[in-house]
Write a protein that binds this DNA or RNA. Sequence first.
RNA 1: GCGGGUGUCGUAUAACGGCUAUUAUCCCAGUUUUCCAAACUGGUGACGGGAGUUCGACCCUCCCCACCCGCACCA
Length: 432
Amino acid sequence: MSGEVSLETIVSLCKRRGFMYQGSEIYGGLAGTWDYGPLGTVLKRKILNLWWETFVGSRDDMYDIDSAILMNPKVWQASGHVDTFTDPLVECQNCHARLREDYIKDKKCPVCGKDKFSEPRQFNMMFKTNIGPVQDEKSISYLRPETAQGIFTNFKNVVDSFYPDVPFGMAQIGKAFRNEISPRDFIFRSREFEQMEIEYFVHPEEWEKAFEQWRKDIHKFLKALGLPADKVHELEVPDADRAHYSKRTIDFEFDFPIGREELLGLAYRTDFDLMNIQKASGKSMEYRPKDGGAPFVPHVIEPSFGVERAMMAVLSAAYTEDEVNGEKRAYLKLPADLAPVKVAVSPLLKNKPELADKAREVYKMLKKEFGAVMYDDNGNIGKRYRRQDEIGTPYCVTIDFDTLEDDTVTVRSRDTTEQKRIKIAGIITTMS
RNA sequence: GCGGGUGUCGUAUAACGGCUAUUAUCCCAGUUUUCCAAACUGGUGACGGGAGUUCGACCCUCCCCACCCGCACCA
């Protein structure tokens, strides 16, 4: 059922319930930017936490990094971004196709076959900015188009501080910026987005082994996000389509409401980045094994996730419609770890002070334990259940007249709509 | 960026060159309600933005912005 959800439904729910709003909406918006609302902020944080816990916190070979968004422009020259991001594009004057000049063979448009083109124009996918008050060529810098370079530029620092055994990884969560020509499809392609990236440094001969391990670990993580395995697909990216630095890439695609699209990438970047830095900086990137083996420049496996895409996948996978008492019900079947609200507490009737007082008491107790707890006395009880369903709250605790007698409450499950009566003292263990 | 389309409360909609605009739902407050969007009362809330034409523009014209569909782009 969730497979048929339209993007529009997701966007609408996100706005109505406070997950995502269009950026600068009150001023007419700004294309390619989105703001997280209260629930979206929490959902995002939970996705980040799950990623971090899975790939960093629970391992002993990972190192955190949080590098600056503004970097020395030499970084982007060395990485190849300045060159590859500034390819001149020409426009076919017949069919208006925009093409990289170096793609055109025989001076003919590959789309329509005609041979008249406009003058080449520079397109730069990096956001330019100026550092300091004087705006000239010397002051130009860029907002990073990927977080990866912040890791590579700190490789030597981390090796010097910790001297970890290879293989080891460096992980970073942070914003990246790309001046996309046409941002589209909700948060799928935006100009400002958040990456969760790892650069995993390996011995050159060990890359395939590490690559395969990451491949498996990624599938496990996607499962933990609640993404059904039959909607996740691996795409072996052919030579011609791979990024300039990569010798092997698998795109992990997901069946989004907009179709099958890339959710994340797993790339073997070879020693491309470290070698570039070594050449550009003159500093050695060699790693000397502690066992006295031959020094080498590590190769890199890069699993690269986008938070927005992950969130869009999570939301569209979670969206479910069914029927309760003959009426349509929409709910988010979010994994309990990800639900922005873990449990909602309600008095059965809001105008009975004794129920409301008791409900407040239970609310406070659960709030202290779980944090993500909401007190809800809007409308009537059925309405509250539906509202909580729609934001993916796994449990609703209702305080009724029996509660006052015997300290029991009903715990209602989002997925089954069934209720169990349990002792207040047992709520926490039931949900943990 | 190109071509086409769209733009009225959060959502879905109605009307009109002439009282700053309809209805439903949502939302908020209250009454009520002993478990799945009940009912009743009241309330907040919109013509995407800016120019122009006009005595008067949500409506006509132009520009901008945003969104949708194609194309291209997505190292």
